[in-house]
């Protein structure tokens, strides 16, 4: 499933309720192809995360549309969009995103728990992902007992659990050591190789060598090649 943005534009009011706005995303067209790892690089404030949130159905654009396959995300009511996101879109947000009252395993299982499908197959897949991300020993722990890098890997496992056709990763390697960074990038690359449309937003130059498509963003405008 491809993810396509058409004439996408986003403005934010300078003050809440004010008509005076600033433009974060200039009108843009973009396609994240299935089976490819697209890496979007850019400086802080360039609009990368805003674009990722809009593509994930989390932030309504000022103008334009987002199509996941044939589905127009912002034409769906909240319940349908949430269900679509749960089933088809995996998102790895910035920062720590653990639910601290749940164990690591329960955190990873959350997408299927929400839909009441936390069955043995899902639990088996948790084991597989945990092994790949080297967090098997941590599955019974609580997030408070984990390091930042371990928490990040937990979030990646959670996003990958439903085998999403679209995977959006916002700075997934920030604050990670080199070895873990390589591991995470390999996992994202594998997800793309298995057919997912993967978009990774990052500062990390290491990501370049894994990218199938490399884009850069500056002042809300996307350029085709970071080089």
């Amino acid at each position: 499933m491809n993810l396509t943005a058409k004439a996408l534009m986003k403005e934010f009011p300078r003050k809440s309720g004010s008509a005076n706005c600033f433009t974060v995303l200039q009108p843009l067209d973009l396609t994240i192809d299935a089976g490819k790892l697209t890496v979007l690089m850019g400086r802080s404030g360039s609009g990368k995360s805003t674009l990722l949130n809009i593509l994930g159905g989390l932030l309504r654009p000022t103008d334009g549309k987002v199509l996941a396959g044939e589905a127009d995300l912002y034409e769906m009511p909240d319940k349908a969009l949430s269900a679509f996101r749960n089933r088809h879109i995996g998102i790895i947000p910035q920062g720590q995103t653990a639910l601290y009252s749940l164990t690591v395993e329960e955190n990873i299982l959350l997408p299927v728990t929400l839909t009441g499908k936390a069955d043995d197959a899902a639990k088996q897949r948790v084991q597989t992902l945990a092994k790949a991300l080297e967090i098997t020993a941590l599955l019974g722990c609580y997030p408070a007992e984990l390091s930042g890098g371990e928490l990040r890997r937990m979030a990646i496992a959670r996003a990958l659990l439903p085998q999403p056709e679209i995977l959006l990763a916002d700075e997934p390697t920030s604050d990670l050591d080199e070895e873990t960074t390589q591991l995470v990038l390999r996992i994202l690359k594998e997800a793309a190789a298995q057919g997912s449309a993967v978009l990774m937003v990052t500062h990390d130059p290491c990501a370049k060598e894994f990218a199938d498509i490399l884009l850069s963003m500056r002042n809300g405008v996307i350029a085709a090649d970071a080089e």
Binding site: S82, A83, R85, T97, L114
Partner: peptide
């Protein structure tokens, strides 16, 4: 708030 935002990310509706 952040936990609830995470739940939204993984597909929890406003109603959920």
């Amino acid at each position: 708030k952040r936990e609830f935002a995470v739940l939204r990310v993984i597909g929890a509706s406003q109603g959920k």
